[in-house]
Design a protein around this nucleic acid. Structure first.
Lengths: 270, 270
DNA sequence: TGGAATAACCTGTATAGACAACCTCTTGCG
DNA sequence: CGCAAGAGGTTGTCTATACAGGTTATTCCA
């Protein structure tokens, strides 16, 4: 490409300046990842190939891919190529990690016991949170997570019907609801609230908690394409669980580019 | 600059390849900010000036400043210049924000009542957390924060002696300990742990909590130049406070580049 | 057959030059 | 005096080119 660019689109006097080309390239690649066209560990077109297919210069393609690297979408290896990153690392930066993964990372055994799995009319407060009309049906699962046969989390989750049509066919023994949801579509936005609360009698019994022991309650709401699709309440015994986070500002230490800022739920058994 | 660069330093066969020039430039500017040579809202040399003073090309200077923008160190305005960012935005991304700021943002009045302010021999567990020898002296402050005269946080903080020499001369009525610490030196690393816990009788009395009401306890440890300098325990009434966080992956929506991923302590008065 | 040289990729960095858009201050005209 | 035009500095983007260094597969020689 030699000329007739820089303003792109060809139309003079467009209302607003068009997006920069490196940004267009980034969004094009992100959408290929989101749509499943490019899957984790798949090869992404090389800079040279992008030059050939889109007509940008190599520096522009390089900027697009470099920024996607910084943002965790892809990983690059000099001499080899560019590959779609495992989305876990990227999406769960500030996300409380999947409880099964946490347990496995501690070398323990995870087990889940499903108590309820149904579609049912939704309560008004939760209808509001999921942006559905009150009284309409939503999928619901209620289960207990065990670490080495000790109950550690009660999960009370609501998922919109149209997002997860085969929700009721899952058994959620091996694949947690959280993992199932991120299989269907990559999470695009998340909101958490952490509270300290005394458990109801039912929760207390399920978690085998002593009397007067508070719960650490995490509520999590996740979005896909600008719509809330899931709302979950996660209850943990307060004397055994804590939420830990670490923060280091970027730019200086290039040693652990991603791993650094994580929030995780820890079992500090005492 | 025309030649004799690219490898920099002049020495052939250096053990490892030298850092890239844009990275050197970034670190140079970061250190000028950290040292206080450049203060918030100060003007940072323009790309053209950096070309003149350091000999890099404008694209290299541009990359350095652009990445510093992404990382929150500086802010740029087309046609005007580059300025050191208010460090609040950069450093407190994942940090629980200063309680006084939170209260002010809600349009309420903040007041602090200092109960203890002294230097005293440190308990073994806290000595361990601050990497000082057990029994040595550390600064200690114990105070209650009020929002519109309602107690909302008990702060129990320990600070190493050599880091804050004039700690005992502060009154901590208007400037919170957290704000005081970030005035002395920009925070470089932080660690938080969130727990649900029943309060001691003393904490319960100070926070005017009902019986059987749990506390949301945040413990925070902060580092400066790779050394832990402060350890704080923050107690909040569980029925009135929650910790909220939001996460959106970067790269798509450029609308709120920084503001997006925040953890804040909220008062949900009921 | 074994192993070294080589070619053909890839990413990472750096440069020089160009144009657009934006902001501020000055200058000069009415 | 008021306001418009312009100059000059600033960021934002894009291109074309170059070289260094890493990885992989092939080729060719001993």
């Amino acid at each position: 490409m030699t000329a007739a660019n820089a303003q792109g689109c060809g139309y003079p006097h467009m209302t607003s300046t068009p997006k920069p080309r490196y940004q267009q390239l980034k969004e094009q690649i992100i959408s290929r990842i989101s749509s499943g066209d490019l899957r984790p560990l798949d090869r992404v077109p090389s800079e040279h190939e992008l030059v050939g297919s889109t007509g940008v210069s190599r520096m522009t393609a390089n900027r697009a891919l470099r920024e996607l690297t910084d943002e965790g979408y892809v990983e690059r290896v000099a001499g080899v190529g560019t590959f779609v990153a495992d989305l876990k690392a990227a999406s769960h930066l500030l996300e409380v990690r999947n409880i099964a993964d946490e347990i496995q990372m501690r070398g323990h055994e995870h087990r889940a016991s499903v108590i309820d799995l149904e579609s049912r009319p939704v309560a008004p407060d939760i209808a509001d949170l999921l942006h559905v009309s009150a009284g309409s049906r939503v999928n619901h699962v209620f289960l207990v997570h065990f670490e080495n046969d000790i109950p550690i989390q009660v999960e009370d989750r609501y998922v919109t019907i149209d997002f997860a049509t085969d929700f009721l066919d899952q058994n959620f023994q091996n694949v947690t609801p959280s993992a199932y949801l991120s299989l269907i579509a990559p999470l695009q936005e998340a909101e958490h609230v952490v509270r300290a609360k005394m458990p109801s009698a039912r929760i207390r019994r399920l978690l085998k908690m002593r009397a007067k022991e508070p719960c650490l309650v995490v509520t999590r709401r996740t979005w896909v394409s600008a719509r809330p699709v899931s709302f979950a309440r996660l209850f943990h015994p307060g004397t055994r669980f804590e939420l830990a986070g670490r923060y280091r500002p970027p730019g200086i230490a290039n040693s652990h580019p991603q791993d650094s800022n994580i929030v995780e739920l820890r079992n500090f058994d005492r």
